[in-house]
């Protein structure tokens, strides 16, 4: 096959790819527009109760109002700070705990049943106790965001630690490495991809913990906006909070993914 023909085929191949991409984008847009369009129309035509289901235009107007009076920014800021803190704390503590379990196989055998029980228990059920113990403030909400992801992080990361190829440890042991050196040089860096992927799970979990925490504390934040809207029967406010949560949870997830790509790339 000559060069010209190969080039032509390649061009065709690229065209097919871009056409497929366009089709996918078109359908995604179509779903978006028809969902919100249908919602708006059915609300205006009273096919659904506008008091319960609100409408995109009402939510949009509320968004403008809340942005202008600054209350949205305050609540969003509080929730974001709590989520980020809870998420970092949960991942860090979980990893440290996993390190301890790896350090002492005896400890890991002793704690095994407790980890299983704690992992199976719905952590948000601890909410009332946390609030009593830590007070109706930011601390208890951050604690909720963290506690929800600690145990699962511990279990996943500890498993990753145990699955590191023992031959890397053998290499280190032939150099006379101590257990600390083995951990720093092999166990931790080899488990890095797993730790990063638990970050992705923990982003979602921390949002759950924080929103539930705000439901319970009911002072500030997006969770508070939802519970408040529910109590005064303002479902436009509930929907607005939901959308803001969806947008920012996605953004946070994307950020973690970006971080993952950067770290894994430097790893290779």
């Amino acid at each position: 096959m000559n060069q010209k023909k190969t080039d032509l085929l390649h061009e065709q191949y690229l065209k097919t790819l871009s056409r497929e991409r366009k089709i996918i984008r078109m359908y995604q847009l179509l779903i978006f527009i028809s969902f919100f369009g249908l919602w708006e129309v059915s609300s205006q035509q009273r096919w659904i109760d506008p008091l319960l289901f609100s409408s995109p235009s009402k939510i949009w107007n509320l968004l403008i109002d809340k942005t202008l009076d600054g209350s949205l920014a305050v609540n969003l800021g509080v929730t974001l700070a709590e989520t980020v803190l809870g998420f970092i704390l949960g991942t860090l503590l979980g990893t440290v705990l996993a390190g301890l379990l790896w350090w002492s196989p005896m400890l890991s055998r002793i704690l095994d049943p407790y980890l299983v029980v704690l992992n199976s228990m719905p952590k948000v059920a601890l909410g009332p106790i946390l609030i009593v113990a830590l007070g109706t403030n930011l601390t208890s909400i951050v604690a909720m965001g963290a506690i929800i992801s600690i145990i699962i992080t511990t279990i996943v990361v500890y498993t990753a630690f145990k699955e590191v190829d023992p031959n890397y440890l053998k290499v280190l042991q032939t150099f006379g490495a101590t257990r600390t050196q083995c951990f720093r040089e092999a166990i931790l860096p080899a488990s890095f991809p797993t730790i990063i992927s638990t970050l992705k799970v923990n982003v979602g979990l921390s949002w759950v913990g924080v929103i539930v925490g705000e439901f319970l504390v009911s002072a500030r934040g997006l969770g508070y906006m939802i519970i408040y809207g529910f109590q005064v029967f303002n479902f436009t406010l509930v929907f607005l909070s939901l959308f803001v949560i969806a947008v920012f949870a996605t953004l946070m997830y994307q950020l973690v993914e970006l971080l993952e790509r950067k770290l894994i790339k430097s790893n290779q």
Partner: peptide
């Protein structure tokens, strides 16, 4: 060992200095 077991997250330089670093 049977396979090289170079640490994939370390550069060649870091790999060959490993024993010296440990000791």
């Amino acid at each position: 060992l049977q396979q090289d077991y170079l640490f994939p997250w370390k550069t060649i330089e870091e790999n060959i200095f490993l024993g010296l670093k440990i000791s």
